Amino acid sequence: MTDITIKITDRKGVEHQILAPTDMNMNVMELIRSYELAEEGTIGICGGMAMCASCQCYALNNVLKSKRNDDEEAMLSDAYHVKENSRLGCQIHITEELDGLALEIAPEQ
Rank of each mutant, 00 (worst) to 15 (best):
L60E: 04
E15W: 00
S66Q: 15
E39K: 07
E84G: 14
G41H: 09
I45C: 09
H16Y: 07
E84A: 12
M26Y: 07
N69E: 15
V28F: 02
C57R: 05
A20S: 11
E39Q: 11
H81F: 15
T22N: 05
E73W: 11
P21C: 11
G48D: 02
L60R: 02
Q56I: 04
C52W: 07
N25E: 09
A50D: 06
K65R: 08
Y58R: 07
V82Y: 10
L37D: 05
K67F: 10
K65S: 12
D78C: 10
S77C: 11
E36F: 01
M26A: 03
E84T: 11
M24P: 15
R68H: 14
N62V: 01
L76W: 04
D71M: 12
H16F: 03
N62I: 05
L64C: 03
C57A: 09
D70G: 12
A74P: 08
E36H: 11
C55A: 08
M75S: 14
P21Y: 11
E40Y: 01
I18A: 02
C46F: 04
H16A: 09
C52R: 02
Q56V: 06
D71A: 11
E36T: 12
G41P: 08
S54I: 06
E73H: 14
P21K: 05
S34W: 00
R68M: 14
N69G: 14
A79D: 05
A79W: 01
L19G: 15
M49L: 14
E72A: 12
M51G: 13
N27A: 10
M26I: 07
A74C: 13
T42C: 02
L19Q: 13
N27W: 03
I43K: 00
N69C: 14
A53L: 07
I18W: 06
C55S: 06
A20E: 06
A59T: 14
V82L: 05
N62D: 14
M75K: 13
G48P: 01
C46A: 08
A79P: 15
